[in-house]
Structure formats: C-alpha cells, structure tokens
Amino acid sequence: MSLATRIAAAALMIAAAVTGASAKDWKVVRVGTEGAYPPFNYIENGEIKGFDIDIAKALCAKMKVECTFVAQDWDGIIPALLAGKYDAIIASMSITEERKKQIAFSNKYYNTPATFVTTKDSKITDTSPEALKGKVLGAQASTIHSNYLEDVYAKAGAEVKLYPKIDDTHLDLVNGRIDALLSDKVVELEWLNTKDGACCKFVGAEYKDKKYFGEGVGVGIRKDDPELVAMFNKAIAEIRADGTYKKINEKYFPFDVY
C-alpha cells in the first residue's frame, strides 16, 4: 500500500466507518481471534487456522452468514469486541462470571481442564498453593489461568508473572525464569510434543473449579446483540447433532473435547 492510500484509508476509517443500523440482520459476522494459541487458533503462512477457526466456519455455515476473521492480541480482545472492531470472539475464551459482567456468551463449544507444566528436572510434585509458596509461577495475562494464580497462589505466597502470549510464557519456562506455568491441558499437550516443549512435563492434578475456570469455552458476544447469541446457540446445537462437530474434533484430537 502506498503512503497516500494508507493515509486516505486511515482518514476514511476514522471519519466514516460508522457501520449503521442495518448491522442487525446479520449477513456478515466479524470474528475476533488471537492467532497465537495452537492448536486452537494460530497463524501459519499468513493464514489463520485451528480448532476454533474450523468451528467458527462450521457455525457460520449453519447460520448462513459470511464470516471474516480479525486477529487481535489477547489482552485487548474484550475491549476490541466492546468497541465494535468485530462482533464475536471465537478464541478459546472460557465462560466465567467475571467476564459475564462485560460480555455475553453462547453455550460452550468445548471444555478442557487446566494444569501445571514444569521442567523435567524440576523437583515440584505437589501443586497445592502451600507447596508452591515462594515459587515463581507464570501464565498468559488476562486468562482464567492468570486469574487463578493471582487469586489463589499469589495470596499463598507465590510470585506470579504474566505474559501477553502463551508462547512468551513457554519461553521463560524453558529459560528457567519461572518454575512452573498454569495453562490449558490441550494447549500444553500440543506444546510438549514440539521440539521446544521436550524440556517439560505435566505436574499435579487437573483444575476445573467452576468459580475460576468457568463452564467451558463459548463464543463471546456484545450484550446488546442477544439475537446473535441465540443464533450461535442454535448453530452449536446443530453441528453437535449432525456430526460436523465430531469430524472437526477428530481432525485435531484423539479424545473428545466437548
């Protein structure tokens, strides 16, 4: 893009991107996703892929709408939804009471537990808050995992470090700057099977406490769009019923993630 067109485009966007009232009979749904959370959503050769993306495409097909994808950093993913940069978040976002204060959710489309990961040479075996007192724990910021660490482990005397991306968290675990990280079990399973993840292992139990980890992962939608919530719920039920969901599940995982 030349400089002049960029300026023109920018000016247009600020002046006249007021997408008007017709937005309510949904023909196009803009989907926000992170693109840095394999295997659920990631960018490969400039293309956005993953379980979330396949589910989103299947849902949009059922809803008979056209879907476009917008990549957005995780820490801004809810503010950007509220600000109207896109209409739905399909990015492995857990349905929690805290988030429900800000946005609405569809029913869940998958549910996986949380777990700690540490290095293979680590002496950590017990992951209770008392046992991890004085340890340095990491998680991706603004997630159920970071909230859990902040509210439970930091209060019990652990030092908590939060990173903008799950990948940065992995990097600092490998580097030994954190003693363990709390993350999604399926995401970590994927990472442990990569070359960089070879250093590390799961440790401790799975965490499912509803208060922190919610009721599974849903589509995030603005509260003023209840009809869109209903559309997504119907579509989720449909892909569950007609086998589309099962096919996508099997493409990615040898176990059921619902």
Binding site: R6, A10, M13, I14, A17, V18, T19, G20, A21, A23, K24, A83, G84, K85, D224
Partner: peptide
C-alpha cells in the same frame, strides 16, 4: 448518540 447501534472503527495505524 447519532446512529443506533453504530460502531466506529479506529484502526491501529490511526
């Protein structure tokens, strides 16, 4: 205030 349900997009560059 002016258009019901309007949203303004400020792109990152702007």
């Amino acid at each position: 205030l002016f258009v019901e349900g309007a949203s303004v997009e400020v792109n990152q560059f702007v």
